[in-house]
Design a protein around this nucleic acid. Structure first.
Lengths: 207, 207
DNA sequence: TGATGAACTTAACGACCGTTCAGCACTTGC
DNA sequence: GCAAGTGCTGAACGGTCGTTAAGTTCATCA
C-alpha cells in the first residue's frame, strides 16, 4: 500500500532531434519537475529516492547521475523560484518607478500570475524550506528577504501611516492570500481566479 | 547536529494537589503540545518518537502509554482544532443571524484571534494533514468543509454577484491571509497585528 | 571497428525509525 | 504492610531510507 506504480517508462529514445521545433527539456529538469510534484503533495520526508525514480521511470540510484543527493534536488527546485520572484519583483518596480500605486498593482499582478502558474513549487517553498541544510537555506532566505523588502518599500511609500514592521505584516498577509491558490482546484477557471485574487489583494493592502 | 536537548525533565511529582487553584494539565495534553511544536517546526516526518520523548523528558517508547502511535498523536492534535473552528464559526454566525455584514466581521474576528493564539497548530493543520491515515483525515476534511461553507454562505449573501465557487476561492484566500501569522514573529505587537489582519481581511472580502 | 561516456540496473551498506516487550520504581488505596 | 496500577526504562525487532559501488547497455564518433 505504498506507491501505485502508475508512471510508464517513456520510449527511452527521445534523445536526438525532437519531432518538431519543441525544445527538449533536459532529463535533469524533467526529473526535477516530477520530484517537485511529489514533494509538494507528500512532503519532503514523505518521498523516497526510489519513489522519485519510479515516478520518473527509473530506479532510485539512477537519480545520483543528475543530482548530488536528495537535499540537492530540493535546493535545485527552490533556489530558482526565489531568484525568479526577486528578479520579477525588481523588474515590475523599476518599470513603474514614479508611481507607487502602479508599482503595487504590478507586483500583485506578477505574484498572482506566478502563483497560479507554479502552485506546486509555491507550496514547496512554503512548507519544506527548513528541510534544507544551512547553506542553501540561508541563500534562499536572503532572496526571500530582498523580495519582501521590495513590497515593504512600496507599501511604506503608499501608506505613510505604516512603519516598516507593520508593512511587513501586510506583505506576508498578501503572500498568504495570493499563495492560497494551490489549495483549490477547478470549479472556477484560471482567469477568474486571478481576477479575484488580484482584487482581494489590492483591497487588503490599500486599507 | 540533530537535536539540542534543552528541555529539562520536570520535578516529576506535580501529581497531587497543585500549589494553587491552577488546574493540572494531564500528562497527555502536555506531551501533545510539545509534539505539536516539533511537528510544526520540523515537519511530521522530520520528528522521531525519540525526539518527542526527549523534548518531554522521557524516552520514545514511553509515549505509547499515552498514545496508540505517532499517527494517533497527529490526529489527536488536529481533530480538536477543526472542531473548535467549526463550533466557533457556527456560534458567531448564530449570534448575528440577521446581519450578514456583522456575521462576516465576527467570523474574521474569531479566526484572527484563533490563528494568533494557536500558530503552531494552524501551521500543522495546513502542512501535515496528508500524513494522516484515511479515516481521521476524512473526518478532519469534513469538519474543514463545513467551516468553509459557513464562510461561503455568509459571503454569497453579502455579495450577490459571487457564485459559490468564487466565494470559496475568496474564503480560502482569506484563510491564507489570516493564517500568515505563524510566519512572522515580534516587531509588531499582538494587538496591532490582529488589527492589521482584521482590517486587511475585511477589505479583501468586501471587494 | 573500437573506444568513450552517458544513463541505467542490481546488490548491498549502515543508519535510523516506529513499535513491541519484559521488567523496574514509585504512588495510591485497602 | 501489601496489592494494584501507572509511568517509565533499556533492549531489541523488522522495515525503510539515503547512499555507494560495480557492472551493463547503447548511441556516438574518431
Amino acid at each position: 500500500m505504498t506507491l501505485e506504480q502508475s508512471a510508464v517508462r517513456p520510449p527511452a529514445q527521445t534523445r536526438g532531434a525532437g519531432p518538431a521545433g519543441q525544445r527538449r527539456r533536459s532529463r535533469r529538469e524533467e526529473i526535477l519537475e516530477i520530484a517537485v510534484g511529489l514533494f509538494a503533495t507528500r512532503g519532503y520526508h514523505g518521498v523516497s529516492m526510489d519513489d522519485i525514480g519510479a515516478a520518473a521511470g527509473v530506479t532510485g540510484p539512477a537519480l545520483y547521475h543528475h543530482f548530488a543527493g536528495k537535499e540537492a534536488m530540493l535546493a535545485a527546485a527552490l533556489i530558482p523560484v526565489s531568484e525568479q520572484l526577486l528578479a520579477g519583483g525588481q523588474k515590475r518596480i523599476a518599470e513603474s518607478s514614479e508611481d507607487p500605486a502602479a508599482a503595487l498593482a504590478a507586483l500583485v499582478d506578477f505574484h498572482v500570475e506566478f502563483a497560479l502558474a507554479n502552485p506546486a513549487v509555491i507550496a514547496l517553498h512554503l512548507h519544506e524550506l527548513d528541510r534544507l541544510p544551512e547553506e542553501p537555506r540561508r541563500q534562499i532566505r536572503r532572496l526571500q528577504r530582498l523580495y519582501v523588502e521590495e513590497w515593504v518599500n512600496t507599501l511604506t511609500v503608499l501608506r505613510e501611516e505604516l512603519n516598516a514592521g507593520e508593512a511587513r505584516v501586510l506583505a506576508h498577509a498578501a503572500f498568504g492570500l495570493m499563495n492560497s491558490t494551490p489549495f483549490l482546484g477547478g470549479e472556477v477557471d484560471r482567469a477568474r481566479r486571478a481576477e479575484l485574487l488580484r482584487a482581494a489583494t489590492l483591497s487588503a493592502l490599500q486599507g
